[in-house]
Amino acid sequence: METLATLFVNVDWYEIWQATLDTLLMLGGSLLFTVLLGLPLGVLLFLSGPRQLFDNRPLYALLSLVVNVLRSLPFIILLIVMIPFTVLLAGTSLGVAGAIPPLVVGATPFFARLVETALREVDRGIIEATQAMGATTRQIILDALLPEARPGIFAAITVTAITLVSYTAMAGVVGAGGLGDLAIRFGYQRFQTDVMVVTVILLLVLVQVLQSIGDRLVVHFSRK
């Protein structure tokens, strides 16, 4: 403990704990809303796509455009542009609550595209077989497409969660708190290298944990 204390003189472990908690809250909250919004959006993108069940060129073109515009916007710009909207939605643009709306808006189009891709990977024969059983479109989606795409969707959630971790670090810039904020304020601006090292290690551990949980779910649901 002696050595640990001398090594990390500037590290306030309570603050680190608070920041970790904030990061986890931001991540959990934004991931939840991203999945809730992105999954239906991804399904809609898939269904309206060329030669799919609801082949609808104008709708697909519109959704595609919105998704592409949001994805091409650098997250840091989105953060700032969204401030008025965030205040409207969360009551504040600061803290964990203020970070969640921009995080969700930033991650949802990305996640929706990944969901669309995962659904496209499902063999057309599966849709056909389900149609031949007399399934409704709703049944085809809920009972065949989504279960079959589950490994791909879990992979998409994993990638999205990891992307969100790096977004939360950026959200620190607009006063969101969390580990990234700590790294910037103390580690970078005050040259407290020990704080930087601790936060980076914690972020790394977080990413590793997310990736291995995700990988495990993908393998489990691949049923190979």
């Binding site: 599966i126 007399g134 049923r223």
Partner: peptide
């Protein structure tokens, strides 16, 4: 529902 169908590549749900 009164007409069954089977396929060359089976088209079973892997999940």
């Amino acid at each position: 529902q009164r007409v069954g169908m089977i396929f060359q590549h089976f088209n079973l749900l892997a999940s």
